[in-house]
Simulated assay, not measured.
Amino acid sequence: MTHPAPSTPPSGNKPAEPRLTSLSHGGGCGCKIAPGVLSSILKGTSAMPIPKELLVGIETADDAAVYQLNDEQALIATTDFFMPIVDNPFDFGRIAATNAISDVYAMGGTPIMALALVGMPIAVLSVETIGQILEGGASVCRAAGIPIAGGHTIDSVEPIYGLVALGLVHPSRVKKNASARLGDKLVLGKPIGVGILSAALKKNNLDAAGYAQMMAVTTQLNTPGPLLAALPGVHAMTDVTGFALAGHALEMARGAGLTATLDWRRVPLLPGARDLALAGNITGASGRNWAAYGAEVALPADFAAVDQALLSDPQTSGGLLVSCAPEAVDAVLAVFRDLGFGDACEVGEITAATAGAKLVLR
C-alpha cells in the first residue's frame, strides 16, 4: 500500500527533504500529554481567583475558555497545535487549522479571527515547505470566514503548527462539556479512526482511498456547533480529539456527575479503520489513553481488543459529541446532515451515576 507523496520536490542541488511525519515523535492530537500525566501536572499549579465573567475555565477540561463581555456577547478563546500527522505540508496545515477552530464551534460559538503558532526546524525544511503549511492553515481560515491576524514563530526541533482561535457566543448559548442531563441521548458528528489511519500512513500502509477518507474527516469544519447550541434541547457539547471517544465521553460524564453509556455497534468508523487496527496500525497514544482512564470504563465480556484500541484511538479534528434531550435528537441530526455530516448518528445516552464505571459500553 502507498501513501501520497509529501512533498516539495528538491530544487537545484538541494537534498530531498524528509517526510514530515518522520520529524515528529507523535502526530496530530496523538501528541497530547496522556490524561493521567496532565492531571498530575495541573494538580501542582496554584489556584487563581476566578472572576465572575469567566464562564468557562479549567474546571472540567472543557474545549475553550469563555469570558463574558456584556449581556449579549461572550468571548471564546482557545489554542491548539501539534506535530505533523501527514506528509503533505498543505494538508498538514489544513488539518491543524481545522482542529484548532473546532474548539470554538464545540462551545457553540462562531469564530472571528485566529493567530498562527509556528515552530519549524529551519535547517531541515525549506521555506517553500513551511509556506505550504501556513497556506494550508490560511485556506481553512478563509473557509471559516476569519482572518489570521498575527501569530508567533520559533525555530524548533520538530515541526509544530496550530492556531489561537477566538470566537463569539451569546452567554446563554455557551455549551459546556459538563452540562449533560440524566436521560440525554448522545449524538456523534463524525466517524472515528483517524489515529489508526495516521499510524498506517506513517508505516506506508495507507492507500490513496484511505488517505482521502482521512483528509475528508479531518478538514471538515464543525460548523453545526452554533446551530446546535441554539436548539433548546441541546445541553452539552464537546469535540472528540486526542483523548479519544472514550476520554471525551468520560469528561462529559464526570462533569455531570452521571454515567455515559455507548452502544458500540452504532459508533461510526472510518472505512477500513478496523482492518488497519487488526493489522497492527495502532498509535502509542491509544495505549496511554487507556492506561489513564481504562479503570473507569466497563466493557462487555466479549469486547474485542481491536475495539478497545478504536475506543481509545486519538482523534485529530474529530466530530462534535452532543448531549441532548431525546425529543431533540431528530433536530440535532437534521442540523448535522444539512451541513454535510452524513455519518452523524445517535451513539448512546446519559444514565444514572454508578459507584464504579463512568463510561459503560454495550
Rank of each mutant, 00 (worst) to 15 (best):
P6Q: 11
E17M: 11
T21K: 04
L23R: 13
S24E: 02
A34E: 11
V37M: 05
S39F: 01
I41V: 10
L54P: 04
D63M: 04
L69S: 09
D71S: 15
A74G: 10
A74E: 06
D80N: 13
F82T: 11
P84W: 11
D87T: 11
D91K: 12
R94S: 05
Y105D: 00
P111C: 02
P111Q: 00
L117H: 02
L125E: 08
E128W: 02
R142N: 07
A144I: 01
P147F: 02
E158V: 11
V164N: 00
V164Q: 00
H170L: 06
K175T: 07
A178K: 05
R181A: 14
I192F: 05
Y211M: 00
A212F: 00
Q213K: 00
N222G: 03
L227D: 15
L227N: 12
A236K: 01
A236L: 03
D239Q: 11
F243A: 12
L245S: 03
L245A: 06
A246D: 08
M252D: 01
M252Q: 09
L258N: 05
L258S: 07
R266I: 00
P271Q: 08
G272E: 06
G284Q: 13
G284F: 04
L299I: 12
L299N: 05
F303C: 14
A309F: 07
D313Y: 08
P314T: 11
G319T: 05
L321I: 05
L321F: 06
A328T: 09
A328V: 07
A334G: 02
A334K: 13
F336E: 08
G340W: 06
E349K: 15
A353Y: 09
A355Y: 06
A355K: 12
K358G: 15
V360A: 13
L361E: 09
